[in-house]
Amino acid sequence: MITAGAAVQGAAHLARGQGCQDAFKAVDLGEAAVLAVSDGAGGRERSALGAHIAVDTACRILAGSVPEATDAPETWTAWIAAAGAEVVLEYRRAVEGVLSATGRPSGRPTAPFGPADPPPPVDAGALAATLVAAVVRPPWVAFLSVGDCFGTVLTREPAGTGTGTAPQRRERCHLVLPPPPPGAPETVFLSSPGAGLRLRSFVVWEPQLSGVVLATDGCAALTLDHPSVRELPPEAGPLPSERFFCGLAATLRANGGDAAPLRDLLSGPEAARTGDDLTVLCALTDGR
């Protein structure tokens, strides 16, 4: 399996002298891969650290006990739901540990507390971040998400429906985890109250699976098409750009997973118009 990713500082962040607040991480398990992408909340001074904690936590927990490819749907569904809840809990613990070790938030007493008088909760929102993660074990993909990142699945035409060998069969892209629509409620972060209750988790079983791509919300304008491009009504919602996703997959397979072309795409003039940080991470089958 080929994994490749890139994170690029947004033009608006660069203009303000603000570093990239996105993070990504991938773990290659041989027959499976774990992907995680996080977007630190803009305006939160330490959100970049929160994003790195989020992807580290997600990859550690998800890589620990991936179900078998032959396991039942119920096994996969229950596993990713439980793992997602654990990710939210462990992220909160890690962030609270960081904040407690580096000084109490403003207004929090510094005197020691007894067992019957616990300290008030740490303001974990200082490191607020969203998260999308995926476990890829063909034919399965398990997703979990908190916030506004999004995910796309790539498939190939079944054998016998195209021409030539597998790599020549047409590849398609499917937006299985869309970003929130315009006017949606305020973004949920891993540190938001009740984040565990607003976690989204689901699994996809796809025999023709050829790849998975995760992205932060800043990439939407670059990677998603308006439905009018395919002569569909606005209510059809955003559609994944075949030019971007399938073209990127073909390039990465051809160069063995060198992320330089992906970084160039995210650094180009079309991407710069968003002003936001841009991060894309993918896992691709080798086409055989």
Rank of each mutant, 00 (worst) to 15 (best):
I2R: 07
A6S: 15
A12R: 10
H13Q: 04
Q18M: 08
C20G: 07
V27H: 02
L29H: 09
E31M: 07
E31F: 00
S38W: 01
D39W: 06
G40H: 07
G43K: 07
H52L: 03
A54I: 07
V55H: 02
V55K: 05
G64Y: 02
S65N: 14
E68Q: 13
P73H: 07
E74C: 04
A83D: 05
A83V: 09
V87C: 06
V88W: 03
R93T: 14
V95Y: 00
A101M: 09
T110C: 04
F113P: 00
F113L: 05
P115L: 00
D117G: 09
A124I: 12
L127G: 03
A129Y: 00
T130G: 10
T130Y: 01
L131S: 10
V136G: 04
R137Y: 01
W140A: 03
A142R: 12
L144Y: 01
S145L: 11
V146R: 07
T155Q: 14
E157R: 11
E157K: 09
A159G: 12
T161W: 07
T163Y: 02
Q168R: 15
H174M: 09
V176D: 09
P179D: 12
A184C: 03
E186Q: 11
V188R: 06
V188T: 11
S191Y: 03
R200V: 10
V203T: 11
W205A: 11
P207L: 03
V212R: 11
A220M: 06
L222Y: 08
T223L: 04
E231G: 05
A236H: 10
E242M: 04
E242F: 01
F245K: 12
L248G: 01
P261I: 05
L262A: 14
G268V: 09
P269I: 03
E270P: 13
A271P: 13
R273E: 06
R273Y: 01
L278R: 15
T279E: 09
V280Y: 00
C282V: 08
C282T: 14
